[in-house]
Amino acid sequence: MGNTAVVDAARRALGPVGIALAASLTSPIDIDGQRAAVVRLESAGYRTVWTNETVGGKDALVQLAVLLAATRRTVFGTGIANVWAREPETLHGAASVLAQAYPGRFVLGIGGGYPQQAAATGREFGSPLSKMRDYLDRMDGPTMPPAPYPRIIAANGPKMLALAGELADGALPAGGPPAFTAQARQVLGPDKLLVVGLTMVPGSDPARARQGARERVSAGLAQPWFAAAVARLGFSEQEIAEVSDRLVDTMIAHGEPAAIAAKAGEHLAAGADHVALLPPIGTDFATGVDQAEGLAPALRDLH
Rank of each mutant, 00 (worst) to 15 (best):
N3F: 09
T4Y: 03
A13Y: 13
L14T: 05
G18E: 11
I19S: 01
I19A: 02
A20P: 00
A20I: 00
A22H: 01
S24V: 00
L25Y: 13
S27K: 14
I29V: 15
I31G: 00
D32S: 12
Q34S: 03
R35G: 06
V39F: 07
V39T: 14
R40H: 09
E42D: 03
S43T: 13
A44L: 02
T48R: 01
T48D: 07
W50E: 06
T54M: 09
V55S: 07
G56T: 09
G57A: 12
G57R: 09
G57Q: 08
K58D: 12
A60E: 00
Q63N: 04
Q63H: 04
L64V: 13
A65Q: 14
A69F: 06
R72S: 15
R73S: 13
R73M: 06
G77K: 03
G79A: 15
N82S: 12
N82I: 07
N82K: 01
W84F: 14
W84G: 01
W84C: 01
A85Y: 11
E87Q: 15
E89H: 02
F106M: 11
V107W: 01
G112P: 01
G112L: 04
G112Y: 12
G113F: 12
Q116T: 03
Q117R: 09
T121A: 12
E124W: 02
E124C: 06
F125I: 00
G126I: 02
S127R: 10
L129G: 02
S130H: 10
L136H: 08
T143A: 15
P146H: 09
A147I: 01
I152Y: 02
A154K: 05
N156H: 11
G157L: 08
L161R: 08
L161W: 06
A164K: 05
A164L: 06
E166H: 04
E166L: 05
L167I: 12
D169Q: 03
G175S: 13
P178N: 07
Q183I: 13
Q183S: 12
A184P: 12
R185F: 09
R185N: 10
V187L: 07
P190K: 06
D191F: 05
L193E: 11
L194F: 10
V195R: 10
V196N: 13
V196C: 14
M200E: 06
M200D: 01
P202V: 03
D205S: 06
D205L: 04
R208V: 15
A209H: 02
A209W: 10
A209C: 07
A209Y: 10
A219D: 11
A219S: 14
L221Q: 09
A222E: 10
P224A: 14
F226I: 10
R232P: 02
A241M: 08
A241C: 09
E242N: 13
E242G: 00
V243E: 05
D245C: 04
D245F: 05
A253E: 01
P257D: 06
A258I: 03
A259F: 02
A262K: 09
G265S: 03
E266W: 11
H267S: 08
G271F: 01
D273I: 07
A276M: 13
L277I: 01
P279S: 08
P279W: 03
D290L: 10
D290R: 15
Q291L: 08
A292K: 07
G294A: 14
A296Q: 11
A298N: 02
A298L: 08
R300W: 04
